[in-house]
Amino acid sequence: MRVGTPKEIKNHEYRVGLTPESVRELVANGHETLVEQGAGLGISATDDEYREAGAEIVGTAEEIFERCDMVVKVKEPQAVERAMLREGQILFTYLHLAPDPEQTADLVKSGATCIAYETVTDDNGGLPLLKPMSQVAGRMSIQAGATALEKAHGGRGILLGGVPGVSPAKVAVIGGGVVGLNAAQMAVGLGADVTILDRNPEVLEELGNYFEARAKTRFSNQANLAECVTQADLVIGAVLIPGASAPKLVTREMLSTMNPGSVLADVAIDQGGCFETSKATTHAEPTYVVDEIVHYCVANMPGAVCRTSTYALNNVTLPHALNIANKGWKEACRSNPHLAEGLNVWNGHVTYEAVARDLGYAHMPIADALK
């Protein structure tokens, strides 16, 4: 199979779909691999390194999309990239379709086979291709939130961990999954006063055992959520419903109960965000203010630490990319039902139920696409 990776073009996105090491593995398995010129420079991977790994360096993304059977990316294809997709071509990348009707419509129209990293599952019901980026984003949310709390960035002027004799910042983490755990780890490590909210009693028990007295846990009902948000200096939105739009848990009305200069960091923004006032931002302009509350809603947070993120991502995506290249997408999905869960769009049909439901498409079961 001919596999290609273009340079990412989303604002301040420096990650790349394939590292030179991943290219070497694909080539060793007999696959022709194309890489757009300069695609790896954001992670300090030169074109010469890709050539040494066996890749052909091409001058434009157009050539990648025109010549390749499978395109491996990081972020969802932008409009100009979606226009280059063709029927039968395989797209393997993050998609986050539920809050993005325009992208979904373009992918349906293209006739391409679109497999989303974020809905591939594992034996434990986890999302292994989303997990490393969730780990990165969870940790980054505390760094970003701590910066946003500084007065020069519009915040209250609070040091997250405080100092002797001065109380630390109060941090509320909504959601106790991978993002929430990693955010809480960072916040606790910096000395913040941390509360984690979740609706799953088993998750709360695990978090309680893990953090012991270093962080508090609360059951996430409306009363507890409202109380924690009101008291918090920094709120981390870490809620995920796989493949579906995130629920709007923090309403605009709740902002009026917070101290001016407090910060909301929405890590669920790729799925539409879990704050009513959230809108996607970029690393160029990461924050905005609503009702005196600072919002940090960067939709590609891990792109800022691109080298760490790219290698962490390739560790988990490469085995699936090899499987698809070796067997073809249909046989790869038949032989691995967890990979099949990643199929979101095929041949003009929406095959992921949550996306079809949220955006009003007829749902084609994945099993029917694999027949």
Rank of each mutant, 00 (worst) to 15 (best):
K248Q: 15
C306Q: 13
T351F: 02
E212R: 14
A187V: 08
G138I: 06
H12N: 06
L190N: 02
G176A: 06
V235W: 12
L207H: 07
A61D: 15
G237E: 07
P319C: 09
Q231E: 15
A172R: 01
E36S: 05
T195R: 08
A232P: 06
M258F: 10
N200T: 09
G328N: 10
A321L: 04
G154E: 11
G162S: 11
Q37V: 06
V74E: 01
D358N: 15
F275P: 03
D368N: 03
R334Y: 01
V178K: 01
T282E: 10
I241G: 00
V267G: 04
N224V: 05
E25H: 02
R86W: 13
A39T: 04
P337F: 09
D198K: 05
D69N: 06
G30M: 06
A112W: 10
L85I: 09
V35M: 12
G189P: 08
V239Y: 09
L318K: 01
K371E: 14
M70W: 10
E212D: 15
L255Y: 13
E87M: 04
T308D: 08
K151F: 15
S309V: 07
R218Q: 15
N314P: 04
L249P: 08
L41K: 11
G243M: 06
I174G: 04
G155D: 05
Y117A: 00
A265L: 14
Y117M: 00
G161E: 11
T104I: 03
H338L: 01
L97P: 07
N124V: 07
M84W: 10
G157E: 12
P260C: 04
T308Q: 09
L197K: 03
A244Y: 06
L207A: 08
G360E: 07
K131G: 00
Y210C: 01
Y94N: 10
G126C: 09
M254E: 08
G157M: 12
Y296M: 14
Y94C: 10
G157H: 09
S220W: 00
A362P: 00
A246P: 05
G176V: 11
E62I: 00
N300C: 09
L240H: 05
A244T: 02
K327Y: 13
E25T: 08
G111P: 02
G348N: 09
L130E: 02
R357F: 08
K7E: 04
V120P: 02
A246G: 08
G30T: 11
R214D: 15
Y361C: 07
Q271T: 01
G157R: 10
S167K: 14
Q222F: 12
H12E: 15
T195P: 09
C114I: 01
W346Q: 12
E63Q: 14
V3Q: 05
G175T: 03
E205N: 11
I64T: 02
E205D: 10
